[in-house]
Design a protein around this nucleic acid. Structure first.
Length: 914
DNA sequence: GCAAGGTC
């Protein structure tokens, strides 16, 4: 191997000790390799002889531990009060080796002096390239005559490493530049905003979340803030969720073979009238006809090979381990040689990996060893080459077991669990998918479709070893097309829409991954930082809520109209970094434009600091010196809080001057009733509402601003907040409220809340009372006319159908058969989940959107700011006292969805309107 | 006392 001539000394530097060891072992093939200590106890030096393209070489292989250098401000800008934070956008910065890395630096200098070549074995990503230049700078400062070469490799595999050293390339300056730019931008933005918001807020408020709020740091960072943003955004989504009642028809059929549960193909309807009419029709003609029976083979595939994020998500889901703890345990398993490198984006095995050898090692395990044996037995047919998840960081393979263990003495329960997960995941990856046989039965009852399905698992395959996943099987009786039967139960049930859950750790990692926040090696740090900074908390179910502090900060920037808490900033930076790494932009260009923009943003945020102060004041008491300036106002008593049942609710004005009735238990209890934005005066009277309970609820004398309410409302009004007051509810819908939540609406807006309110006030329609248009161009009038014309055209074609207003599908004409509407024709949409419904006679009258569709959309637009359901819903429906007789006389069971009584249906329920 | 990225 070694050629002739004089040997040269080659200094090889890897990113971490383990890679140095692997490279040295692979190149020397373990023969004639010597190990000696460097100055740093972790970073050994391996020596052996080797030949590179005929050149005899004395190889010295050593390592750094990640970045060797740090970027920092020059001394005079390091103290917080030494300069204006805005100066940090131009303050000089320098790269230097921190104290704890000086040992490594000295080793590199000493070895470089006696070498002719420097070969860089850093990871083949942008950070690795940047570290390469840190090593180059350090080594060439000691020896200017070094010949510098870069080794490119994508896996620590013998052939790959030999190929790489025989085909050395030049280091890539663009890659390193991209990282330089990122470091500088992160430092300047992070330091300036952190100093600004900490110094502004820490002393102005009593922030009780931290034990010692004098030393609290309110940090800002381009990764930690968007991470907080995800948590707050979900929290707001939950807070602003308006529960909405829906109706659903459930059907089951019991036979000798068992029970089949049929789901309504429409899913659910939000309109009661529509649902009850359909239901009544089903009850009156309950005979079900089997419209179709479908049988299909279904597969459940094993997961892709394991990447870091996937490991963190799964450990969180399966063992409730935090991502930070998972990485700590994984690192220890890696250090001890049991699993491969745990920080990897790669979820695809290289074709050169000997997968069989990894499985072979596990054959002796008492629990999963027999599965490994089956995998290796070709006659079992269990083996399948792993799928490709589509990610490759070109530096590390997917996480897999590297050494057999039946469990080590010094392992904690979490070490056992994580090793087991890595092994089982790997075995699952090289296994066949589970196979199931799925049967779907579709039935028709009075023109309504229902479907039931069952599944029988034919082969569990990978599920035998991957015990974390299951695939539910259920059996349904046999049905044949055309078969008729009478359902055993047919019920109209109601449900309520629910808000999404708080974000779990796995959800949060998902959000970050999608938005490109952090890297696989740092995501868990950003999550932990939210907890360390008292910005968020994690509950027992591993779900995250913002703290008052976290919510206030995001709210403050949101009120300024800045998206600083959104992932956009990071995405923009990432876009620029890519341009630099591809040579499309220079580092200097990107730094100049980006920092200029960020400085402008910083100055603007600082001039709007009042918004941050206001947001903080929503949650925190002012510190003594600032509180003295303001009078503390306790409002007038209105009622006992119906939510916490402990504190009083009082009439107050918020900082924008808007009226609200809030619970004095705040912030423990957040019950609040926001009043219409058009209220100019409000005074609690001695009058007690005689219809709302539990009482007493004192009535409030309101005065509205004339120009902000429709002409048919009076300016003076004696109102109740208990839910009985129609006038107040209507004005709330028309004028909006002073609530921050209602101003925020579907998404952040650059307009201030009050600006948005006054806009909508000006445009409330007096015809339909919707926002955003006037009565002259009310869409309900226009679309009603247009649609009735198109419906007529349909009918002239001879088909008794209309096109659906909502989804455009064809809606066949049908005849109602209920006590109240017998013989009346209507159209209802057949599409799944669509609830369009209209009476034929209302079309002939040229009417607009009455019927189900209009009702449903009204109901969705309804505000619940007065705590009740508001108008609409059941109110528009006349009750009847008729009873339903099954058309066939067969034993159809049904029950009233309101009270559950089987002796009558909902339309005859005595409790229905109470 | 600030960031995020490496890694021990």
């Amino acid at each position: 191997m070694s050629g002739g001539g004089r040997a040269i000394n080659v200094l090889n530097v890897a990113e971490k000790p383990s890679v140095a060891k692997s490279v040295a072992t692979l190149l020397s093939r373990g023969q004639g390799m010597r190990v000696r200590e460097g100055r740093s106890r972790y970073n050994k030096i391996f020596e052996f002889d080797y030949g590179i393209r005929g050149q005899r070489c004395r190889m010295l292989v050593t390592s750094v531990t990640g970045h060797l250098m740090e970027l920092e401000f020059e001394d005079r800008f390091r103290k917080w009060h030494s300069c204006d934070p805005a100066d940090l956008y131009a303050a000089p910065v320098r790269k230097s080796v921190p104290q704890d890395k000086l040992d490594i630096k000295r080793t590199l200098e000493e070895e470089a002096r006696r070498c002719q070549w420097l070969v860089l074995w850093l990871d083949c990503d942008r950070e690795g390239e940047n570290i390469a230049f840190e090593v180059i700078d350090t080594c060439t400062a000691a020896n200017r005559n070094l010949t510098i070469k870069r080794a490119r490799f994508s896996a620590l595999i013998e052939r790959e490493i030999h190929d790489s050293v025989q085909n050395l390339v030049e280091p890539n300056r663009w890659f390193a530049d991209a990282v330089d730019a990122r470091q500088e931008i992160d430092l300047r933005i992070g330091a300036s905003f952190t100093r600004f918001q900490t110094m502004l807020l820490r002393d102005a408020f009593v922030i009780d979340s931290a034990a010692d709020d004098r030393n609290l740091v309110l940090s800002y960072g381009p990764c930690q803030f968007p991470t907080l943003g995800f948590v707050v955004e979900r929290f707001w989504e939950i807070q602003s969720h308006e529960p909405e009642e829906f109706w659903i028809i459930n059907c089951s059929h019991k036979s000798e073979e068992g029970i089949a549960t049929f789901n309504w193909t429409r899913g659910h309807l939000f309109d009661y009238t529509c649902a009850v009419i359909i239901y009544e029709m089903c009850v009156e003609e309950p005979s079900a006809t089997v419209a179709g029976v479908r049988q299909q083979e279904k597969y459940k595939y094993p997961p892709h090979p394991l990447s870091t994020i996937e490991l963190e998500k799964r450990a969180s889901r399966y063992f409730r381990m935090s991502s930070e703890h998972t990485m700590k345990v994984a690192e220890e398993l890696y250090q001890a040689g049991f699993v491969s490198y745990p920080r990897t984006e790669t979820d695809n095995f290289s074709a050169r990996t000997d997968l069989h050898a990894i499985v072979q090692e596990q054959q002796g395990h008492p629990v999963w060893g027999s599965y490994a044996q089956r995998l290796l037995d070709p006659s079992s047919g269990l083996w399948r080459n792993p799928s490709n998840g589509g990610h490759d960081d070109k530096a590390h393979p997917p996480i897999h077991p590297t050494k057999f263990s039946g469990g080590e003495r010094n392992w904690s329960q979490d070490h056992h669990r994580l090793y087991e997960l890595v092994v089982r995941h790997f075995l699952a990856c090289v296994s066949q998918p589970a196979v199931g046989a799925e049967t779907t039965v579709e039935i028709d009852i009075a023109g309504e479709q229902f479907a039931a399905s069952g599944r029988v698992i034919i082969a569990k395959n990978y599920l035998d070893v991957y015990r974390y996943e299951s695939w539910g099987g259920s059996v349904i009786p046999t049905y044949v097309p055309g078969q008729q039967f009478i359902p055993t139960t047919l019920t109209l049930d109601s449900g309520v829409t629910r808000p999404p859950p708080l974000l779990s750790e796995a959800d949060l990692l998902n959000c970050m991954d999608k938005a490109g926040i952090g890297t696989d090696a740092t995501m868990h740090d950003h999550i932990k930082k939210l907890l360390d900074r008292f910005y968020a908390t994690k509950d027992q179910n591993m779900r995250f809520s913002p703290t008052n502090l976290g919510e206030a900060l995001v709210m403050g920037y949101d009120d300024m109209g800045y998206k600083l808490w959104k992932p956009n900033l990071r995405s923009m930076m990432e876009f620029d970094m890519r341009a630099v790494s591809e040579g499309a932009k220079t580092k200097a260009e990107v730094l100049e434009t980006c920092l200029q923009q960020m400085k402008a943003c910083f100055l603007d945020a600082r001039s709007n600091k009042q918004k941050l102060m206001e947001a903080m004041a929503v949650f925190f008491e002012r510190a003594a010196q600032t509180a003295r300036d303001e009078q503390h106002v306790v409002g007038e008593f209105v009622r006992l809080c119906g939510l916490c049942h402990q504190s009083n609710m009082v009439l107050k004005r918020n900082r924008d001057g808007n009226f609200m009735v809030g619970c004095l238990g705040f912030p423990q209890c957040r019950n609040v009733v926001w009043l219409p934005g058009s209220v100019s005066e409000a005074v609690v009277t001695a009058n007690i509402c005689n219809s709302c309970s539990p009482g007493p609820i004192y009535m409030i004398q309101f005065k509205f601003r004339r120009l902000e309410i429709p002409p048919y409302f009076g300016v003076d009004h004696l109102g109740c907040i208990g839910g009985c007051d129609d006038t107040l509810q209507q004005l709330t819908e028309i004028c909006g409220t002073g609530s921050r939540m209602s101003a925020r609406g579907g998404g952040p807006t650059p307009l201030s809340s009050s600006a948005q309110r006054s806009n909508s006030r000006q445009q409330a329609c007096s015809n339909c009372r919707q926002l955003g248009h006037s009565s002259t161009d009310c869409p309900s009038v226009i679309s009603g006319t247009r649609n009735s014309r198109s419906r007529r055209a349909d009918q002239q074609d001879g088909g008794l159908s209309v096109s659906c207003d909502t989804c455009g599908a064809s809606c066949p004409m049908r005849t109602a058969n209920t006590a109240n509407n017998k013989g009346r024709k209507f159209y209802s949409c057949q599409s799944e989940g669509c609830n369009f419904f209209v009476w034929e006679d209302s079309l002939q009258n040229g009417g607009g959107r009455h019927g189900a569709n209009g009702g449903a959309s009204n109901s969705r637009a309804r505000s619940n700011s007065l705590g009740g359901r508001g108008r609409g819903g059941r109110g528009g429906n006349n009750a009847t006292n008729g009873t339903f007789v099954s058309a066939t006389g067969d034993p159809v069971t049904g029950r009233c969805y309101v009270c559950g009584d089987p002796s009558h249906f909902a339309n005859a329920c005595p409790n229905r309107f109470t």
